[in-house]
Nucleic acid binder design. Structure first.
Lengths: 225, 225
DNA sequence: TCAAAAGTGTTTGCTGTACACCCATGC
DNA sequence: GCATGGGTGTACAGCAAACACTTTTGA
């Protein structure tokens, strides 16, 4: 039961993107140093203000596109952050969004252009404002969801080996997984399909490449890994 | 990396409260009819604007207190809703919060005073704006959390019978639970304590009253029911 | 005496977990 | 020929699910 608008104050609303990537068996985050005040020089998530003509989701996708040049990425709202003085300049409410991208899809030139880099989650620096809280919450959600939703594939190329897939789970959950048990489980999942292609890059013997059959998942959306 | 504030537009930010209650083996929602434009007369969640001197969480707690006169209730953010035209009047971004309260703690007089009522979740009417979406998301989160966090106790009096507790789970999960298996599980949970009190209201024979020992939970916060 | 809710154990199947060795290849 | 990562099966335990009858008491 809201009361009349004009008795109330407006605030800035922004979105901040927690962008996860995966490389060298490690989870990474795309971070940059702020190049404006307040907080100039501090490590920060990449964000932007929500404009009049766009929804929150649109704003998050726009910001992500500006940074990566990629569209249609997996993205999910993490939550709204609204402490009074969370932004040192003005009152800004920010909606955090979490994205999962395949590091190899990300154009290296853009790293320099936007002055961002992939930072290992393990040695996360102190971030601007409440961005550390945002990251913490995003990781909690990611850990909870990774076993019941097919998110892991977003962090990998469309063709991947079972070892790569297992490495993603180990990085996110922060624990070692038994190889035989893991592969046994993948075998029961119909839409993790073995292709006839072989990856010869990471091993001498070569490893079978698998792919995620999205349509098969949509037809029977049960996931447990 | 946000750019300068004054290039951007401010918007109204509100909170909306999804208030769950439990009575007669049914989950209920506290709803009212809007008594102002836009949307006058439509069923709606109870909400309010976020003011300059309060955080989002503070605003949600204030709104909930205004409505119920109760403080310290369980409350959790559901998410931010920000479609451009979600509010027919002005651009308003709203943060949905979910609260769990014991219906018997709620002063009946306030029902009339605020013109709200408990509505069975099963026959939920069409709500103002995107409030149905908020409710749907809140229920999804509630279902997911009820088995791994001690939320159910918030919907019950401090002393409750195991049958009442089971009824809460059945109402939230929407399925019948085997009584013996359910009670077996409760027995393994140390902080669901049997008291020496007997409830003689709902049964002739009388049922043992239990209580949730919050401190014991905090000391060993593992929950699985 | 009957209706209504409380209370109580056992069996069975399945799922999750622990565990170690051979294979193919490039260098 | 050896170092590197790929690939495979079994046994056991613990948990989850199915299942039916007795007890108490107020009306």
């Amino acid at each position: 039961m809201t009361t009349y608008y004009n008795e109330h104050s407006k605030v800035f609303v922004s979105v901040d993107c927690i962008i996860f990537g995966f490389e060298d068996k490690k989870l990474k985050l795309l971070l940059g140093k702020r190049h404006m005040d307040p907080g100039r020089g501090e490590w920060s998530l990449y964000g932007g203000f929500v404009e009049e003509d766009e929804s929150l989701d649109d704003a998050a996708n726009r910001v992500l596109y500006e940074l990566t040049g990629l569209r249609g990425l997996y993205m999910k709202q993490v939550g709204a952050f609204g402490a009074i003085d969370r932004d040192p300049g003005e009152r800004v409410v920010s909606i955090a969004y979490c994205a999962l991208i395949n590091v190899r899809d990300y154009d290296q030139k853009l790293l320099n252009e936007h002055q961002v880099e992939w930072v290992n989650l393990e040695n996360l620096p102190e971030l601007y404002s409440d961005h550390n809280d945002m990251v913490t919450k995003a990781i909690t959600l990611l850990r909870r969801r990774i076993s019941s939703e097919p998110l892991s594939f977003n962090l990998l190329p469309s063709l991947f080996t079972l070892t790569q897939l297992q490495n993603v789970y180990e990085a996110i959950l922060g624990e070692n997984i038994d190889k035989r048990n893991f592969r046994k489980r993948t075998k029961t999942i119909d839409y993790i399909e073995k292709t006839d292609k072989i990856d010869k890059i990471t091993s001498k013997r070569g490893a079978a490449l698998y792919r995620f059959n999205k349509q098969a998942y949509i037809d029977d959306p049960i996931f447990k890994l």
